[in-house]
Every structure is written in C-alpha cells, then in structure tokens.
Design a protein around this nucleic acid. Sequence first.
DNA 1: TCCAGATGGTTAGCCACCAAATCATCGACC
DNA 2: GGTCGATGATTTGGTGGCTAACCATCTGGA
Lengths: 174, 174
Amino acid sequence: MSVSPPPITRFERLQRLARRFPQLDTSGLETCITLLRLSNDLSDAYDASLARHGLSKGRFTVLVRLFSTSEAEDGRGLTPAELAENSCVSRATMTGLLDTLEKDGLISREDHPEDRRMYTVHLTPKARQLLEGMLPEHYRRVAALMSPLNEQERVTLRELLAKVSTGIPAFREP
Amino acid sequence: MSVSPPPITRFERLQRLARRFPQLDTSGLETCITLLRLSNDLSDAYDASLARHGLSKGRFTVLVRLFSTSEAEDGRGLTPAELAENSCVSRATMTGLLDTLEKDGLISREDHPEDRRMYTVHLTPKARQLLEGMLPEHYRRVAALMSPLNEQERVTLRELLAKVSTGIPAFREP
DNA sequence: TCCAGATGGTTAGCCACCAAATCATCGACC
DNA sequence: GGTCGATGATTTGGTGGCTAACCATCTGGA
C-alpha cells in the first residue's frame, strides 16, 4: 500500500514555472492574478445584488447616470453615445440595453431637438421609484463592502490601481 | 445668444447623490468604481493579448495549469472538476472549454483509472509547443504591466485587495 | 446485497457583451 | 447647392459565461 506524495502547492508550481521561464516576474504575476480574481468575485457579487431588482451592471449604470444627471441638470436627457461612453460599453451594447429598459418601462426615447440622427434618453417615473427604493440599500451594501478599509487605505488602493492602469498600454504592446 | 452652462463633473454628481442618499459612502463608492473599471480594462487587455494566440482567459488558464502540473508531477493529468475549481468557472463551462480545446488538438481526454464517471485531461505536444512559444512573451508583458509598482507596493496592493475580498460576504447579505 | 443520496460530466437554454456591416443624417467643402 | 466623408444608432452573428435539469457512476449504510 503506497503513501501518496505530499500535494504540490500553487506556490511551488509557480516557482517551477519561473525557473523555466526567466521572463516570469513572480510577484508581478501573483499580484496580477490576485487582482483578476478579486475583480471576478466582486463583479459576480455586484451582479447578484443587482439581479434582485431585475437589473444588470449595465442597466443599473445607465439608470443611475440618468438619475444623477437629471437631478443635477433638471431633466436633461443623455444620448446613447454619451451613455455608452459613461458605462464603458460599446454603442451596439447600449442599443440592446436601452431596448430592454424601454420594454420594461424604465426609460423613454425622445427626439433630439437638434440632430435627427440621435435621440435623448429619459427616466420614467417607474424608474425613479425603483431607484429611490433600492439605492439606500445598495449604497449601504457598498459601504459595508469597503468598510474593512480605512480612509487612508482607500486612498492608497486608488493610487496603486492608478499605477497599474498606467501599465496597461505596455501590456498591449506587440 | 445664450452661453452654455459649465459642465457638471462626475464628482459633483456624486456629491449631489450623497446628499440625497446619506447611506452613500463617497470614498467607498469611488474606490469600488475605480476597482471595477480597472478590472474591466485589465481583463480586456488580457483577453486581447491572448486572442493573438487563439486563446481566451479560460482556455489559457486550463492549458497553463495542465502544463505546470505535468512539469511538477511528471505527466499527471487533472479532472474537469479540478480544472473548473482552479480556473474559477463552472463545471458546465469547463465542459465547453475542453470540447473546443480537444477539437483544436490541444488537449486529450483519457479514462480515469479509478472512477468511470471521470476522465483525466492531458496536454498534447501541439499545446506544449504553443505554450513554450508564447509564455516568454506573455510573462514579459505581465512584468511590464506591473513594473510601475515596486516590491513593497505590490505587497500592499495584495493586502488591500485581500481586505476588500473580506467585505464581499457583507456585500451579498440581505 | 442493494438502494439512496452524493458526486461528476453533459445538455439545453439564457444573458451580456462585442465587432463588423448597414443605414440615416449631418456638415463642410467645392 | 450638391456631394462626400464623418458621425450616430441599429442589426447581425459570434463568444464566453451561467443555472438548472439530466444521466451515469460511486459509496455508505440498512
């Protein structure tokens, strides 16, 4: 009866790879993987939370952006292109988001006063009611998520993330 | 002729929202949004980089995991469930990934010696050749991505991310 | 020994997102 | 004033991921 060998850890496998590929920067890869995994987990949690209200990240982002703009600039609507830019999705995706939001009675499309290629998007009363009902809870959740970090740590985290983002162009290079 | 009013900044809209919803923790939300945006950008860059070699994040993760395991434990294969766990995807998704990897001649499925419900997954020589060709370049890229952070900053970033991840369960709560 | 529940892989159907091609309109220039 | 490139929205077709329901196999207890 043979005894099974001790399991190889993730760290050991990484060390071996690093020996074989000298270009591998162990701490950099470790950090990158940590970041990608957390992103995934956070993104999933965010989606699950919004799903209770029949929303996705994209739908929610659109509604909140419309809400905050209309609060600040009294009823101003936004164009699909502005919303796509703000939500970091393609314009094609925005068309789809707006279609379903309109079907659900949460937004309306209105003629753009100056340019007939475009239209402006506005929240319906139903959407305002939905947001006013859910945002307190949602913001409470986000506050709970971030509560393990004190003010200084939050600043530091944002700074470090900003540094990583400066590296992205280099990542994309030939 | 009227002069258009100054544009409202993202920060101003956030301030207004915070006045309206006292549950809104401005610095927390700001940090959360920064994190989600960077994740998105990084994820896109990662995908674009892998796409040059006909891979996606999921496909790549599977291949590298098989590679490093077979290096460390001389030819050991992994089961779909182990791979799904390692790659943070559902088992259903893993089935799909393995189907296309097999169709592309990058992995083979072999009978599991002890349990007929399972099989083990192995890299083909073609996959080894692909990885050996692309990994030096890939790891060089990751190193470049992380080069704006020094060693201490990387440690700090990982620690802060770990703290955020402790907040995720609270985020999911009722 | 045999059956019930656990476990592993697959299937079917859904959703969010994207790029590329398409169509309408705008605006600038001859 | 007409034409042509730019711009905005949409359509089409494809990818990657998920859950839920399914079937096969294993395993532990009556």
